[in-house]
Design a protein around this nucleic acid. Sequence first.
DNA 1: ATGGGACCTATAGTGGCTATAGGTTCAAGC
DNA 2: GCTTGAACCTATAGCCACTATAGGTCCCAT
Lengths: 149, 149
Amino acid sequence: MSGAAYAIGDLARQTGTKVETIRWYERDGIMPAPARTEGGHRLYTRTHLERLAFIRHARELGFPLDSVRALLALADDPERPCAEVDAIASEHLSAVRDRITRLHALEAELVRMLDRCGRGQVAECRVIEVLADRTHGHCLSQDHSGSRL
Amino acid sequence: MSGAAYAIGDLARQTGTKVETIRWYERDGIMPAPARTEGGHRLYTRTHLERLAFIRHARELGFPLDSVRALLALADDPERPCAEVDAIASEHLSAVRDRITRLHALEAELVRMLDRCGRGQVAECRVIEVLADRTHGHCLSQDHSGSRL
DNA sequence: ATGGGACCTATAGTGGCTATAGGTTCAAGC
DNA sequence: GCTTGAACCTATAGCCACTATAGGTCCCAT
């Protein structure tokens, strides 16, 4: 059908993806295995290129690969209601906002520490003091989802 | 010298750390190996407890373990200038602010996508459209540090 | 025909833990 | 002293999404 075929390096250049990442996507299963040359080099089609572009774009927006998988499945089935897409994106937005909130708290805490850091020695350093202070307790909530603040 | 000795579970309870994490810290080297009972159970001292509390507190503030190691080394040497501590904390603060900035950009992009999502079908879904749009390019900067936005 | 860049596989490493399996030890209660 | 069961032990694999390396093979332009 379509004439153009792409080597893995072409896909990499066109989508700003590392070659290793593309191969990893294939092993992972999110990218379908392409045809091969006699010598074993991968030969991609435009369809592959578009799928990879979609994946990379979603990843740039911070969607985890599982969400990308779900979004791809929805994109491949245009009659499904948009609400499912909306749900995935909304959930991700919440996660992003959560992280922003936590990072703001962190930032404030760091600023507070640093503000009080004199120019002296470690012995009277507020930063070390704060870190060593066990009475300070766990004011920042524990993160149970892989500690990515 | 000091009488009190703690089991690993005591340390865990007192610092809000999982037992497995404490053992991992020991293998990692950031926590020194404690004495053992005849049967092989770990016996910690107050020094261990304080060190673990320091580590956990720094981790709560998002310092990577390598920075925690550096901070511990400084804390153990009270004559060193406070500026070194300041530098580590300031660098971390910059990193946190960077992440906040990137997450804000992300949030805006997600909101923009979602705002335009109608109640229809995937076929005309803006979210899918945006993700599939290769002309959209790489407006969000690539993250080379482990993709933790 | 040859050179070298692009490609191949397989494996290990990143960070910071978490989880599981399968066994041993300790301390409290009887 | 004996039993129970919670807490402890080691070793290993898994998480996420790649990245890096080693050691080889292929393709194409000259």
